[in-house]
Design a protein around this nucleic acid. Structure first.
Lengths: 211, 211
DNA sequence: TTGAAAATACCTAGAAATCAGTAGAAATAA
DNA sequence: TTATTTCTACTGATTTCTAGGTATTTTCAA
């Protein structure tokens, strides 16, 4: 650490949230809010010139969405610790931000204690979620509740080859089968997923984590 | 907690790992290893009759893979805390296990301290990773490094409609365009992703988190 | 060993997608 | 305002997919 306090930025399009966070954090000994932004682009420009150690980021921003922004920040500088502070409670959004390099995710109704805790964990290099968020992640996702189609070994195999953009003809050659057989399997796959064609099939299979 | 000690199960196909863990954990005051399994199926049968509070799970098992098993366990009983103990260092595998309800992920070379720490966090309802795993998650994934194709507004729109299994004809109707125009966009999309057809296009788009 | 499920393979025929070009109009950034 | 990108639309030929069936053989569990 180059200074004694973490240079902290806030990015949120609600002035009230910015003010609230500033007030909440002003007595923290280990960090100092050095800049605030309403737009993602502004923050991206800022970090090209200024040093930032930690950023609290909203997901909903006027110009860029927080998930993409998170990625861009990390691309700019890996050393910036990104914590997401959001109202979104959808599992997919939470997972996406972590995928994109965030060190944690908190809901805006989190307590100051939780915020403090997550910041300190993040600084230590850990990934941290607020209580509520952990519950959302742990809760089985929709995919898991909705029972996925039961695929046979051959079907799984052909599904994966289809996902690679291979034609029936090619697949048939690779598996030493008649193209007609592959067609049949393909048809059964489409039916099992109640898809209209292979495109939708691949989409569904992806969403169910089968590819 | 119903008993004073956490009833802990170990699932791993390597007898040596099982023995090692048993030895390591035998002096823990807060848990007791009550059962061990080499195969996933065996464990699934076991929990239908017996109470288990915590399970340490390997990803590579002879019958079922740990990611799917994790999901099945959670479907059987949400109260069982699942910690993954694995040698796999691929990001996608780690994320998948968390998606499937695991409370943490450790590499097999983790220290006993790390294991202790993760267990205690998991019991508290948190999600916890060992140091090395946290680094893997934080490290930008391949997707993010390989720059994704730059799509125009129209292309994004048509991509998403294609993913719904719609034909050029249908899409053209919905967007008040000529089917020939939609064909052109489709072709450009396929080219930008260097895919062989729409199936591969949808697959790629999914992997890049664009759908 | 006897079903049931899975895998294999075929037919016909229409629908849709893909390849390989070209090119004007519209929108947008420099 | 100019330059560039994006959106639009077309031709023609070819390949691949999809939908409706049917049917035999293999495999695996009860």
């Amino acid at each position: 650490m180059q200074t004694d306090k973490l240079r902290t930025a806030l990015v949120d399009d609600h002035p009230i949230v910015i003010e609230g966070l500033k007030t909440l954090l002003q007595n923290e000994t280990n960090l100092e809010v050095t800049s605030t932004f309403f737009k993602g682009e502004d923050f991206l420009s800022y970090i090209k010139v200024n040093q930032v150690d930690l950023v609290l980021l909203d997901v909903t921003l006027p110009d860029i969405n927080g998930m993409d922004l998170c990625q861009m920040i990390k691309r700019e500088s890996l050393s910036i610790i990104v914590l997401i502070l959001s109202n979104h409670t959808e599992r997919s959004i939470i997972m996406q931000t972590i995928q994109n390099g965030a060190s944690g995710y908190l809901l805006k109704n989190s307590s100051l204690d939780e915020l403090r805790h997550c910041i300190s964990e993040a600084v230590k290099g850990n990934i941290c979620f607020s209580k509520e968020v952990t519950e959302i992640i742990s809760r089985p996702s929709k995919n898991q509740l909705q029972d996925r189609p039961q695929l046979t070994r051959r079907e799984k195999q052909i599904l994966s080859l289809l996902a690679q953009g291979k034609t029936s003809h090619i697949i048939a050659e690779e598996l030493f089968l008649s193209p007609l057989t592959v067609d049949t399997h393909r048809r059964n796959l489409i039916q099992k997923f109640s898809a209209k064609n292979v495109a939708e099939l691949i989409m569904e299979a992806n969403q169910l984590g089968l590819l």
